[in-house]
């Protein structure tokens, strides 16, 4: 028993130093005014001002859009990947981009979408006028979804791979069409993977800030952007921490909503 505890020491230290302590510090900081006085003002400001609430709504709304877009692309992709012969190899190709630094990928998109980028060059070549692609909501969603897609595909792919093929045969055998099999057998049995994918995409998307600036051109201002501004620009650590706390609470709510539920209920 003692030995087991011994092995746990490094991770416990890590947790305390880099997870526990920062959260406590942030909590404390969120109750501090800009000149170091204990106060509830930060929370009052947050929930009293239309700007912050709009930012929160923006964060949730864009995270939702990003999640929906990645889900709509990822589920059919995962389904298709599972039918391939060398599916692990193909999966590797999809995971590969996640090994590349996020900033690098974002800059690559600036090169693609920019005023003199590849797409506009092509448009010009075809005889069209160059378009403003960068710094738009659409380009923000495109890049964010691109970056998040592997995190959605992976858990769905794994859940689908675990479904026993004879269950699908059984469904056809009992008279189900392809569509009915998807709806009544494949979808419910991959629900855990879909849930895990939603968590893995929605929660980080709530606090995106770099892409909002580099690709969205600060047209989309989310809570992530606000935190960055408060810590690095206005130096109002108290307000930044308050937003951080609100974000953490939003994440906990997301986890709770998408948690694994006991099965039940007739789904016909």
């Amino acid at each position: 028993m003692n030995k087991k505890l011994f092995y746990f020491i490094p991770y416990t230290l890590w947790l305390v130093l880099f997870v526990g302590a920062p959260i406590i510090l942030m909590l404390l900081q969120s109750f501090m005014s800009i000149d170091g006085q204990a106060t509830l003002a930060n929370y009052q400001i947050f929930f009293g001002s239309g700007t912050y609430l709009r930012m929160m709504f923006n964060s949730v709304w864009y995270a939702f859009l990003i999640t929906v877009i990645t889900l709509v692309i990822s589920f059919p992709t995962a389904l298709f990947l599972n039918t391939l012969r060398h599916k692990d190899l193909w999966l590797l190709l999809i995971i590969l981009p996640t090994w590349i630094n996020l900033l690098l990928k974002t800059y690559a998109f600036i090169g693609i979408l920019g005023h003199n980028g590849s797409i506009n060059s092509f448009l010009q070549f075809m005889g069209f006028a160059p378009q403003q692609l960068l710094f738009s909501n659409a380009s923000f969603l495109l890049v964010a979804a691109y970056i998040e897609i592997p995190f959605m595909i992976l858990p769905i792919f794994n859940a689908l791979a675990e479904i026993d093929n004879s269950l699908i045969n059984a469904s056809y055998d009992l008279g189900a069409s392809k569509w009915q099999t998807l709806r009544h057998v494949i979808l419910p049995l991959s629900a855990d993977g879909i849930r895990a994918g939603i968590q893995a995409v929605f929660i980080p998307s709530l606090s995106l800030f770099m892409i909002t600036r580099l690709i969205g051109g600060n047209r989309v201002i989310t809570l992530g952007t606000a935190i960055e501004e408060h810590f690095l620009v206005t130096q109002n650590w108290g307000m930044g921490s308050t937003i951080g706390v609100v974000l953490i609470i939003a994440m906990i709510i997301t986890m709770f909503v998408t948690r694994e539920r006991k099965k039940g209920g007739n789904k016909y």
């Binding site: 026993d164 004879s166 269950l167 045969n169 059984a170 469904s171 056809y172 055998d173 009992l174 008279g175 189900a176 069409s177 009544h184 057998v185 419910p188 049995l189 099965k263 007739n266 016909y268």
Partner: peptide, 29 residues
């Protein structure tokens, strides 16, 4: 196709749908 044949199968590993109860399994078809 399999879903249009008047033939039904009892699978070696039974292949019962784990997301449904006994009633729903039997009622599936």
């Amino acid at each position: 196709p399999a879903n249009k044949r008047r033939v039904n199968t009892v699978f070696q590993n039974y292949a019962l749908f784990p997301n449904m109860n006994v009633f729903e399994n039997v009622a599936f078809g």
